[in-house]
Design a protein around this nucleic acid. Structure first.
Lengths: 194, 194
DNA sequence: TTGACGTGAGAACGCTTATTCTCATACACT
DNA sequence: AGTGTATGAGAATAAGCGTTCTCACGTCAA
């Protein structure tokens, strides 16, 4: 019953997603052709379209996959930076610092994709909003756990500051905006009810 | 010596820039064809390419033009909101609030364009960085004038917060992030040396 | 072995687009 | 009026791309 495939469906699926992540992130959605994904992943056109019936579907699958992987990486990196007893809320900036200094860093894939998404791509738009919603939720958990008496606007403000730092570090190719953001948040936490 | 033109060169130039602004902002660079600009501006293909020898040139001209117009609008809006005696630094958030609630708001054209710009478009990249640099500079002037003893990281932090709010208001289609950002900055200004 | 079928490789199709080219026309100057 | 030149309108060109199709091949069941 199982089809005779030179590579298994799961292998092909993960190869496509891995390639999509590399190419879409590095060049943007519009800068990558389906044939590029075929060439870089080794998955044939036929199977590519069997797995993802359109480029739009592939992009949606990529965004969904990247969301879970990025959130896993982020929560893990924050925990690691907070392991020595540092404030986990401030540790988020250390995690982001690791990211923006990575070679090939090109900003937030979700923000970038939103810029390429026109009003018709509701599926993409909701995945992107879901990513930012989940990030804000995670920040709210960190804040509630470590600064239970902080003002109610703190999580949303943290999300704003983090996104702004991600964007500005991309624009300027520098960590100066991130350092300023961290200083501001440290000041915020120090002058706020704990 | 002057050529026989049905419309003057200046009229054509400004019609092209106005149309480019409408279309590029609404649909993104990749979503607009040169023929779309011809159709919407009424400027012929020949003249379009005489004014701007390539789409890349047109995009650069658009970004440059939008930069001066946006900065003029922003400084003016901040002054207007600060006219009643409000803190000009906080008034920047009122100006941004006016903007993000405008129908057709689609985020920051420069951030969006950067997402569509690959590593080869150095001209675009430097215009975009120049825009953010000038914005940060203006914020630094506002801060120095009204909060001379504020910490040195304040202008960069303000720029981060403003960009983050612009992005998040785009993602969520809501002003909640902007309100949280304003609250955070108000708190910052109140707990910082003036 | 045979036949049915799923697959890979990549060509083909149809469409979009950046850019250039053609040609008829209208104005400037004599 | 006549001529040259710049222009507008839009067709032509050439390339890229999303998607589908062809065809030869290898695999599995009988």
């Amino acid at each position: 019953m199982s089809p005779a495939a030179t590579t298994s469906v799961d292998d092909a699926r993960s190869a496509v997603l891995r390639t999509a992540d590399e190419l879409f992130y590095a060049r943007g959605i519009g800068g990558v052709a389906m044939s590029d994904i075929r060439d870089a992943s080794g998955v044939s056109m036929r199977r590519l379209y069997t797995l993802h019936p359109s480029k739009r579907d592939l992009v949606a699958a990529w965004l969904t996959d990247r969301h879970v992987r990025w959130m896993a990486w982020f929560t893990n990196a924050v925990e690691r930076h907070a392991a020595g007893g540092a404030d986990p809320v401030l540790a988020t900036f250390d995690a982001i610092a690791d990211w923006v200094t990575t070679p090939g860093y090109r900003g937030c894939a979700f923000i970038n994709s939103l810029a390429e998404t026109n009003e018709l791509d509701d599926a993409h738009r909701s995945i992107i909003a879901g990513h930012k919603r989940d990030l804000t939720l995670h920040l709210a958990v960190l804040a509630a756990r470590n600064h239970p008496d902080a003002p109610p606007w703190l999580p949303a403000a943290l999300a704003v500051v983090i996104d702004g730092a991600i964007v500005q570090c991309t624009v300027f190719g520098s960590t100066v905006p991130l350092d300023a953001a961290r200083s501001a948040v440290r000041h915020l936490l120090e002058t706020t009810p704990t």
